[in-house]
Structure formats: C-alpha cells, structure tokens
Design a protein around this nucleic acid. Structure first.
Lengths: 215, 215
DNA sequence: CCGCAGGCGTACCGTACGGTACGGTTCCGC
DNA sequence: GCGGAACCGTACCGTACGGTACGCCTGCGG
C-alpha cells in the first residue's frame, strides 16, 4: 500500500499512535532489533492487530518513521521585510533547529534505521527521512536565501549551492560521528556548544555570501 | 579477542584476505544481509574454517571492515616548505580524496554497516570506520593547518574547529544523502562535479581562514 | 608408506522471529 | 439481550541463519 504523502492528525487513530509510540521507544532503546512481539507486548496489543493495521514489519517501521518525522515542524520566517538583522536571526534559528534535531536520540535512531534499510535496497525509509530532514530544511531555507539576494543582503549564483554550504557549515562532522557512535561526542557535550556553533556557522555563512561586511 | 591496532600485510594470510574480499563483495552487493553460508560459498571455504579464523560473525565483519579501512592511504604532504600555492594544492588534494572516498560504494557500504552495528550497542565497527575515516583525515590535516598558521598563511584560533569546517565545506549533505539512498544523487552525478566542488570548498575555506586575500 | 594437520563440503541443531490461527472478552448497534 | 466486529493473548508454524559436528580429501614430514 502506497503511503499518503501527507501525514495528518487523522491518519492514525489515537490507539494506533500509542502503538507507534511504543514502536519508536523500542527503536530508540534496542536499535533496529525491533520485533513484532516486543511491540505487541509494549503496546499491549496483539500481533494480529499489528499485521491488520500495518501489513507487515516494514509497514509498521515505515508508519513509525513517517509519523515521527512529520512531527518535526520548521519555523516559518516572514520574508516580506528582510533586514540584515532579521536574516541573521533567521539563519541562526535554522542552524539551531538543525543542530538540536540531529543530535537528538530520536533523530539518530531514525537515521540509523533508514540507513540500515537503505543497505537492503529498501529506499522508502531513507526517502521519508530525507524528505522530512534535509529536504524540508532546503524547501524552507531556499526562499529566504533568494529573498535575501533580491534584497541585496546576500550574493550568490546558485541558491542550491548556498543551501548546501550552510548545511555543511552547521552540521560538519557532527552527524556522521553520532551515527557511528562516537563516544567522544556525547550529547551533552555537543549541546553545551550549540549556541557558539550556531553563531560561528552563521558568521561564516555571511562572511562567504554576505553582500558586504554586514554583521 | 581484541583486534590489533595496526593492520599490516601479515595480519591476514593471502587465503584469509581472499575470504575477506569475498565478504566485502557480498557486503557491497547485498548490504548487511551477509550470511556466513554465503561467504563460505563465495570464498569456497567451509563455515568451520570461518569460525576457526574469525571466531563468529561479528569477528568476520570486524576483520573485513578493518582490513578494508586500513587500505585507505592518505597523501603525505611535506609541510617543511609551505607556500600559499602548496597549501592550496594540499587542501584541494585532501578535498578530492575525501570526496572520492565517501561517494565510493565501498565507503558507503562500510559506513552503513558500521552505523547498523552502532544501532545495536556495538560500537567497535563504528570506531574502526571513524578511526580510518574522519579521524585519519584529521590527524593528517591538522598538522598542515598548524604549519600554515605558523607560516602566516592561515589564521585561526582552534585547528580543531578549522578542520571541522573544512570537513563540512567539502562533505556538506553529500554523505548523509548517499547513506540514506538518495536517488537524485547518483554517483556519476556527483563524480562529474568533484573538481568544481573541490575548488569551491578550498576557495571558501581560504576565504574564511586565509591570512589575507590569497587566492 | 603412514599419520596427521589443515581445510572443504555438507548435514545437522537450536533458536529467534516473521507471520497466522484461534479462543476468549469487550463493546456497540439494533 | 443478541449478533457481530474489533481486539487481546497466546499458541503455533515455517524458515532463515548462526554455530557445530563429521566425513572426506590433500599435502607434507618422517
């Protein structure tokens, strides 16, 4: 069954959402070793119900990832009156949201699960994570960048390139190291530096793409 | 059995290396669905031999990853006579090596395998990949950056920060998208842009950290 | 020529887990 | 009150796969 593009509140009943919550919790706890029996026990439902609702294990996994990924909400920036100050604050907000998201356990788990699935020719989970992660940010950020260019606040040829550089400046090696389980990069460790990193990334992005030396 | 830190030629006999090659091929082909029976058949050896040599499935996986990861050799840059030109070429070489590595199927497979393992509280594979990937680059790059700072070619406070920014400028969202199986990012697609990306990343890094407007 | 170590192929075992079947219970419409 | 739908709990089935055992062959030292 092809999943709907948009996940809304009514897509899953409250009971189903409780099941998905249980599945997500188990995913975070036990990694990809998610068994249908464990989900059924945790959610106090029968396996038969799981199969009835979600088809098979992949369906449950997909529903879980999609449901959780859709929870991530991006801040909406009013691009009608952009100033250097507003632009900077918007960029900082994006950087902050991006960083706080990728260092969260839920994000790490979802990305790991999707990557594991992508290793088996199943790209559906990967597409969902991509669509609700990097691509969602890109959709939000690019119009702002282009509006800033129109307002002579930024200068670049390709907004696509500019977005990707921003992504790189913010994420750097943090995500891959967390995904690989780098112990020297504890969550609290990164968390403490978020504000400094956000500011640094924004400064650097503006240094590269700012129309002049606009702080 | 704790694995040796350093993998040399003599660590594995030729026959064992043939087995590891078979395992790696299967890993690239079938993702993490690697079975001992498949390896034994592909390598024309018995399962009993596999267990004798590598202990268990994890041991075989670890040996495969470690053996392959150790194959990646970094270019050695002579940092005794650094000029702006030599520095730029060195940076471009690092960027080129980094990009060509991460877009390769072997690297994608190894990273996916290690991430899958990290999702199960097994961090050994992740550590190996980290150690031979990002950390190896860091070890090579940081001395060069520091030498360049001493030669007044670069200006920065923390060479750690500088390295991580360089990593971000080069990798951007390429690696995570490939790991997630993004179809719109074909290998040939990225490959065609490598030289442009290498140059762009180097330019941007020098724009941020160059002592002056040194092209 | 003999014995034996190393290794191949295969058969085998145990278990974990995806998926199904079924009896029992609750709840809702009629 | 009654029939049925939804759902829980659990027992069950089939299979895939990790790991082991064993028979056989080959090569080699003595």
């Amino acid at each position: 069954m092809p999943l709907p593009i948009k996940i809304s509140e009514e897509t899953f009943t409250p009971r189903q959402q409780a099941v998905l919550t249980a599945a997500l919790d188990l995913l975070v706890e036990n990694g990809d070793g998610l068994t249908m029996t464990a989900v059924a026990r945790r959610a106090s439902c029968s396996k038969e119900t799981l199969y009835k609702w979600f088809g098979d294990r992949d369906g449950l996994l997909t529903a879980t990832v999609q449901w959780q990924a859709a929870k991530v909400r991006m801040p909406h920036v009013d691009r009608s009156h952009l100033s250097a100050k507003v632009l900077r604050e918007s960029l900082e907000q994006f950087a902050r949201d991006l960083l706080t998201t990728i260092i969260g356990e839920v994000s790490i788990t979802l990305n790991r699960t999707a990557i594991t699935h992508a290793a088996q020719e199943k790209d559906s989970l990967g597409n969902i994570v991509l669509e609700n992660g990097p691509m969602a940010i890109r959709r939000r950020l690019k119009p702002i960048l282009e509006a800033a260019r129109d307002a002579r606040l930024l200068r670049f040829n390709s907004s696509e390139d500019a977005y990707r550089i921003f992504f790189g400046l913010v994420v750097r090696d943090v995500q891959i190291r967390l995904l690989l389980g780098d112990k020297s990069l504890t969550q609290s460790n990164v968390e403490a530096n978020i504000e400094a990193d956000v500011k640094a990334a924004t400064d650097q992005f503006l240094a590269l793409y700012g129309a002049k030396a606009n702080t």
